[in-house]
Write a protein that binds this DNA or RNA. Structure first.
Lengths: 125, 125
DNA sequence: ATCCCTGCAAAGCCTTTGCAATGCA
DNA sequence: TGCATTGCAAAGGCTTTGCAGGGAT
């Protein structure tokens, strides 16, 4: 547990629910540790994912977002401005029937709702 | 409708359910049109997505996969070998309650089941 | 003749890698 | 002291852009 890792985790805890990308985390961490390298960010994020503390999300927005694992939830994304919201979701609610599982051991599933946020629904573009 | 577009569409129709990436399509199209440029692939795919013929999938596998829109289905991915399977899924089955929608106009949602295919479940790594 | 599409080449963005130096335990 | 971690710099993969040539209508 190094200062670098503490700083990264702190950003994730403070900015919970912004779902930052590695790049955004990198940008923010510059404030306190201006010469942290990208490699450190990526290393740390991967380890935290490995440890099960973070989840890495691909939401169809063209980047990888990192999310502290707090509770069961799905994501709601604005296809226009890329805003991301958490929504409550019970992962027990949806199961893949055995006969459709192709013999897979299913470990989890993810749900993404896509649409337009209030602002973008009014003025598309 | 140019020969290039026909070739790309044909690959998608023939290889339905392999969910190729742009790169994979690019590689395959070389067989018949060796000097098609990447730009053409990407342009065409984007247009087809725009037209609603294809959907672009980010499945957490680190690339963008293209899928002919035939029928309602979800995706099942192997976290190890990255195999992708279609599974039947009724998109009417899951709805986001208004009070959780943050005012969004929800247009659709996507479901990804994650797990390990039979081969990878036996010999992980 | 016009306009859209193509190929080419280069740049771009994000991420990963290799290696030497650092510093934590 | 020893070993994991860091920073740096460079490379890598994939995608996008700009521009000029070419084909189709």
């Amino acid at each position: 547990m190094t200062p670098q890792r503490r700083a990264i985790i702190q950003i994730l805890v403070e900015d919970d629910n912004t779902h930052p990308t590695a790049e955004q985390i990198f940008a923010r961490v510059q404030d306190t540790m201006p010469n942290m390298s990208p490699a450190t960010i990526y290393n740390t994020l991967h380890e935290l994912v490995e440890m099960g503390v973070l989840s890495e999300l691909e939401l169809g927005l063209g980047g990888r977002h990192y999310d502290l694992i707090m509770t069961d939830h799905a994501h709601l994304v604005c296809l226009d401005c890329k805003r991301i919201e958490d929504v409550p979701y019970d992962h027990g609610a949806l199961a893949l029937p055995d006969e459709q599982a192709h013999g897979f051991q299913v470990v989890d599933h993810r749900v993404i709702f896509r649409g337009y946020c209030p602002a973008c629904a009014l003025s598309p573009g």
